[in-house]
Write a protein that binds this DNA or RNA. Sequence first.
DNA 1: TCTAATAAGGACCGAAATGGTACTCTTTCG
DNA 2: CGAAAGAGTACCATTTCGGTCCTTATTAGA
Lengths: 153, 153
Amino acid sequence: MLRVSRLTDYATLVMVCLGDTGEGVLSAQTLADRARLEAPTVSKLLKQLAQAGLVVSTRGANGGYRLARAPESITVADIVTAMEGPIGMTECSVQPGNCNLEPWCGMRVNWQRINRAIADAFASVTLADMIHAPPPARHATTIPLRVAAGRVS
Amino acid sequence: MLRVSRLTDYATLVMVCLGDTGEGVLSAQTLADRARLEAPTVSKLLKQLAQAGLVVSTRGANGGYRLARAPESITVADIVTAMEGPIGMTECSVQPGNCNLEPWCGMRVNWQRINRAIADAFASVTLADMIHAPPPARHATTIPLRVAAGRVS
DNA sequence: TCTAATAAGGACCGAAATGGTACTCTTTCG
DNA sequence: CGAAAGAGTACCATTTCGGTCCTTATTAGA
C-alpha cells in the first residue's frame, strides 16, 4: 500500500496532542504518555519536527516542546515533508540527473504534475482540522483506551 | 521521500512501451530490452499487471503481452493500485479495526479526505498522457542510452 | 553550587520490505 | 515432439524502518 511511514503517522498524532492541550510546553515523556507511544520514539520524531521548525524546544529542567506556529498554519504537508523529505513519487521528479532516461522520457513532467497535486492534497488539511475534527460516534458502553495509531495494543 | 516503489515506476515505463508500439503482442524479453530493465523483473511486474487486468497475456510460443484497454482509459492510479494495492496514507484509513484509537481519534476522516485527493491526482493522468508527453528538449550532441528510471547506469 | 530534569546527537540492532534471481511447470505454435 | 514463452514458487542480498540505548549539553530549582 502506498502510505506514509509509521513515524509520520505518529508525528501527526503527537502534533495533535501538542496543539490540543492549551499552551504550556510538554515534555517528550508527557507526549509519549498522551499518545500511548514509546518515549524514545517520540523523542526521535520531535527532534525531527524541531529541526524542521514545526515545534520549538526548550532544554533543561521543565523544558519540552511546543508548536512553533498556530495549528491553523501548520499543514499535514509540513509534517510529512519534515518526516519524509520532499514529496515526490519518483526519483526523477525530485532529483534530476540520476536517470539516463531523462532526455528521452516524457513521463517526468507528468510525474511532476502528480506530485504537485499530491502536495496540494496534503497541504489542504491543517493541524487545526485534525484537532477539531468531530470524533466518530461514541459507543456508549466503553471508554476506549487511547492506543497509538496502528498499534494492535 | 514519499514515493511509489521502484517496481511501480518500472511498471509505468513498461506500460508506456506497450502502449507506444503499435499493437502486436510483445514478449517480456522484448519489453525488458526496450525499457532497459532485467527480464525477470519485467516478467514479475507484467504478471501483476495481468492479474490486475491491465494487460492481457498470451501463453506459448509467440506469446506475450498487450494492453487490455486503450491507453486513454488506463490511468496511473490503475497502475499504482495494481502494483501497491489500495492507496491509503495510514493503516486506519484503509483497514478500520486495527487501531484502538479509532473511536476517539478525529484524524481518520481527514486522512480519508487526503487519500481521496491523492487517488484523484493519480487518476487524472492517463497512460496516453504519459505516452504522448513531449519529451524535453533534445541535446543535439549525444544520443542518450535508454536506461531505466532511477538506475544510475 | 550542586543536582535533577530534559533535550540533542549519535550509534546500534532486529525485523520487515524491496528488488532481484533462479528453477520448474504449463501452454501453445510449428 | 520440441522450442518459445508465460505462470508459479521459492530464495537471497540489500536497504529501510522502527525502536532502543548511551553520552553530552543545558537549564531550573533546591
